[in-house]
C-alpha cells in the first residue's frame, strides 16, 4: 500500500485530503458540541467542505470557467472545467440554506419553550418531564434516547 504514495499521487490528492479534514472538523462540531446554534454552524462547515470536494472533482488543469463567449464563437482549443458538479452544488447549497433556516427557526422555538439552547440543559428538562410522566403512568423505560 505504501508504494502508492508517490510524489505525483500525493500532490494530486492533497486537496481532497484537505477537504476531508475540513469536513471532519465540521462533523465533529455537529456531533460533539452541545450548543444547538453551534451544531448548525458545524453542519454548514461540513456541507460547504463537501461542496468544495465536489467542485474540485470538476476542475480540469488548464481549464477555465464553463461560460462561452457571448457570441457563442467557441474556440475549440479552450478547455472548460466540468460544469456538472457546479450545477449539483448550486442545488445543494440552496438545499443547505433551506435546512439551516428551518433548523434556526426550530432553535428559536426551542429557546422559547425551554429557555435554553444547550443540549444538556434541555435533556435535564426532558428527563424531568419523563420522570413526572412515569410517576403518573407507572413504570417505564426510555425517555429521550440521545
Amino acid at each position: 500500500m505504501l508504494e502508492e504514495f508517490t510524489w505525483p499521487f500525493i500532490v494530486g490528492h492533497l486537496n481532497y485530503w484537505l477537504f476531508i479534514v475540513l469536513m471532519m472538523t465540521g462533523l465533529y462540531i455537529v456531533v460533539a458540541k452541545g450548543n444547538l446554534v453551534k451544531k448548525i454552524v458545524g453542519l454548514n462547515i461540513f456541507q460547504t467542505s463537501v461542496f468544495m470536494l465536489y467542485i474540485s472533482m470538476g476542475k480540469v488543469t488548464g481549464g477555465t470557467a464553463p461560460i462561452f463567449p457571448i457570441d457563442l464563437n467557441i474556440d475549440p482549443d479552450v478547455v472548460y472545467s466540468n460544469p456538472l458538479p457546479h450545477v449539483l452544488i448550486l442545488t445543494a447549497i440552496v438545499v443547505g440554506i433551506a435546512t439551516t433556516s428551518l433548523g434556526l427557526a426550530l432553535i428559536v422555538r426551542i429557546r422559547e419553550e425551554y429557555d435554553s439552547i444547550e443540549e444538556e440543559r434541555i435533556l435535564e428538562i426532558e428527563q424531568a418531564i419523563a420522570n413526572a410522566e412515569n410517576q403518573r403512568h407507572g413504570q417505564a423505560m426510555g425517555g429521550r434516547a440521545t
Partner: peptide, 27 residues
C-alpha cells in the same frame, strides 16, 4: 408536547448528516 421541537431538531441534524453522507457517496 414541547418535546416535539427537540425531536424534530434531532431528526433534522441526523437527517441532514445522513443526506450529506449520501451526497458524499454520490460524489
Amino acid at each position: 408536547d414541547k418535546r416535539a421541537l427537540t425531536a424534530s431538531y434531532d431528526y433534522l441534524i441526523m437527517g441532514t448528516i445522513g443526506a450529506t453522507f449520501f451526497v458524499i457517496g454520490l460524489g
